[in-house]
Amino acid sequence: MDLLIAFLIVTGAAFMFIGSLGLVRLKDFYTRLHGPTKATTLGVGAILIASATHFSNQQAGISVHEILVTIFLFITAPVSAHLMSKAALHLKLHSLAPPPVIGKDDRHS
C-alpha cells in the first residue's frame, strides 16, 4: 500500500511540475494554456487520491472527502480554461497558430 501511495504522490508531483514547466517554456498563450489545464489537474488529482488512500489506510474508517476536491477541480478546470481562451481571443493576443477568421457571425456581444 505504501508503494502505491508513494507512486501516486511522485507521479502527481511530476505532472504538476511538467504542467508548470509548460507555462514557462511554450511560446504563446494558447499553447501555454494546455499545460496547466491538463497536466496540473491530473497531478493534483493523483495527489488527492494518494491522500485519500493514505488516510483510509491509517484510520479505522475510510476517508473519501478528497474525492470531492478532485471532482470539483475536474469540473472547474475546463470552465476556467474556456474562459481564459475566450478572454485571450477577445484581446486578440499573439498566436503561433493562424488565428481564426472572426466573421461578424462570430463576434460575441
Partner: peptide
Amino acid sequence: SAPDRILALDTLYVNTIALLV
C-alpha cells in the same frame, strides 16, 4: 499579457492545493 497572468494565478492556486494536501 493579462490572460497570461490569470493563467499563472490559476496554476498557482492548483499548486497550492497540492502543497497543502
